[in-house]
């Protein structure tokens, strides 16, 4: 299954690369830190420092862009040697939780000002993500993986470095509802990246 995702990612990148011809396109690569919330925070209390996103957007007009994105997030938390209790059971073991999230989203971006040195924007990503939530307990590993709906509103600003290159700073919230045994997933993220344009 993983190879299918990777093939899809590579195909998307190639397609995006090949289609940069007709209109103005904005390409962005960003890196961020993510901070888990709610039940996902109980499963993974640590912040995530492996969050990459690549996206390509086509400019519909000066204020509105649409496109797609691929993102990869990894979270891990080492609980150490802990004792956990359930109904009539108790388990003591070194316990590590981790998850990989590979997200594919359609992106809508609304620029709040006309093109300039600093352009604030609102962005909404809607799509699906494949997540693999895993738990290592002593010698054992248990986990679940599958697809989840994903919603990712963001706000940020693009600061022009030169005509076709900009620095992007953004903050957002990601939510993936419970699905197929996967815990509901939610996290805030702060990201920084580069955005370059092609006319």
């Amino acid at each position: 299954m993983k190879s299918i995702f990777l093939s899809a990612v590579v195909a998307l990148l190639i397609a995006a690369s090949a289609s940069h011809t007709a209109a103005q396109w904005h390409t962005e690569l960003n890196y961020g830190s993510a901070f888990t919330t709610d039940r996902f925070h109980e499963f993974l209390p640590s912040a995530g420092f492996w969050n990459w996103q690549y996206q390509v957007r086509k400019e519909v007009n000066d204020r509105y862009e649409v496109g797609g994105s691929v993102a990869w997030s990894y979270f891990e938390h080492d609980f150490g040697r802990i004792t956990r209790t359930g109904e009539a059971i108790a388990v003591t073991a070194n316990t590590v939780h981790y998850t990989n999230i590979l997200a594919f989203q359609f992106v809508n971006q609304l620029n709040l000002t006309d093109p300039g040195e600093a352009v604030p924007f609102l962005r909404l990503g809607i799509g699906a993500a494949h997540q693999s939530q895993q738990e290592n307990v002593g010698l054992f590993s248990l986990g679940n993986s599958g697809w989840q709906f994903m919603l990712n509103p963001e706000a940020g600003v693009r600061i022009a470095l030169r005509d076709d290159l900009g620095l992007v700073l953004a903050g957002g919230y990601s939510f993936l509802p419970e699905s197929g045994g996967l815990l509901p997933t939610s996290f805030w993220s702060l990201k920084a990246g580069l955005s370059w344009s092609k006319f």
């Binding site: 109980e42 499963f43 956990r84 359930g86 054992f140 248990l142 986990g143 197929g180 045994g181 815990l183």
Partner: peptide, 15 residues
């Protein structure tokens, strides 16, 4: 019990 719901039947053991 700690996370509210138990793992569903999809959760399996393995190394």
């Amino acid at each position: 019990g700690a996370w509210g719901d138990p793992w569903g039947p999809g959760w399996g053991w393995g190394y």
